[in-house]
Amino acid sequence: MTNEKTKIAMEADLILENLTHTLLYEGYSLYPYYRSAVKNQKPIPFGVIFPKDYNAYHEHSHSKMQSQSIITGDNDLTVSVTVRFLHLRKTELFQKANNEKDNEDYIPVSNLDINGKFYNSGWQTVERKITTGDIGLTQLAKGGISIPIEFDNMNEGELILNEKNVVVAKSVSSISEITGSILISAESIIESTDSFRITVVVTNTTGLENANTISRDEAIMQSFLSTHIILQTLQGEFISQQDTPVKWTTATAGCTNINTWPIVIDKSNTTLLSSPIILYDHPEINPQSSGDLFDSTEIEEALLLHVNLLTEEDRNRIGTEDEKMNAMLKKVNGLTPEDLHQYHSMLKENKASQFNNE
């Protein structure tokens, strides 16, 4: 790989990581950030892939995502595919029925304050990432390949002690097993040599008991949340489906994308991101952004001011609910008045001729 291509690849990777991280957590937790707030009691609503068993009884709860795009290059054209999503982790909180007796009776509660530390029932998420190596497009055109998605269940508990080191409560965290597949295939574009229509289908095949009667919240425990598909190549480029050159309009018109929206990330069109959130090609994160606030469609200045108005008790409570929220609060706490002022107003040079007084 040439130095120029290496530089391009590194720049694309940085843009991709920042952008994908932001999209993965869009809507993860919204102001006032408490898990008890109604709008924060449901997991992320974007890019949910439900189990096929659940989809059989709920047709609008989709069990697959399909990204289809055009890639062109030379005889050595390869592509790597990455699928990223969030997996729900549920935490249940139980208070001991009688703290003065050595018994095993516990009562479910939504939250507790023990020695000034807050404990909450609710949900958090675990990031999942599956990446293929480089796959030759000629190979894919001869027959698709299937990559398994397999993550085991997990259950772990924690005893909660008071200031006298007596057990007063316990929390139980659980992750449900999920399985699925990533089917990758390609077909040659007849109108052009060394060009292909590549298809990536992500399906949730998790077995689900009583799929006809369980609630949506129960099904989400075994769903892929905020699912994103990433394709990268070094030898070729992806054809934009928003600003398509005339030569490729017929080919791109034949692409079918299901529950996702493909965009090219870098100026060289070597990276394609399929997201459940609609974006334009070549998106950028505002360099002024202070970091995760989990609501990129909101005015960041307003959110920062709202967070700064939270009481110390509020901050402690929110920070103990989730490590991601705690990291966000630390970033906001570190902002200076000068940092906040730059959000309020900014002068930019406008080079448009109609605004010049000549």
Rank of each mutant, 00 (worst) to 15 (best):
A211H: 06
W261C: 05
I160V: 06
T252D: 03
G236M: 03
T199W: 00
S275K: 09
I229T: 13
P276F: 06
T203A: 08
A169P: 08
V200Y: 01
I278C: 07
G254K: 13
F224N: 04
I278E: 14
S192N: 13
D266I: 02
S192K: 15
V172M: 13
L234N: 14
I214K: 02
G207D: 11
I220P: 00
F224S: 04
Q242C: 04
N269Y: 10
L161R: 13
S195D: 05
Q235G: 05
S176Q: 15
G180M: 07
L208W: 01
T199F: 00
E163F: 07
T271N: 08
E177W: 02
L272Y: 04
Q222K: 15
S195K: 05
T193G: 02
L272N: 03
V201S: 02
T227D: 05
I190E: 14
F238K: 01
V246W: 07
T249P: 00
I175T: 12
A219H: 10
V166K: 14
N204T: 04
P245T: 04
V201H: 00
S176N: 13
N269E: 12
P276E: 08
S240T: 13
N204D: 06
C255I: 01
T256E: 15
I278L: 11
V201I: 15
C255S: 07
S240D: 10
S268D: 13
V202Y: 01
S181M: 09
I239Q: 00
T260Q: 06
K170I: 03
Q222H: 09
E187Y: 02
Q222D: 03
I184L: 06
P283I: 09
I277E: 03
V264H: 02
V264N: 08
T227A: 08
N269L: 03
S171M: 12
S173G: 13
D281K: 07
I160R: 02
R197W: 02
P283K: 09
E187M: 12
I182C: 07
L183R: 08
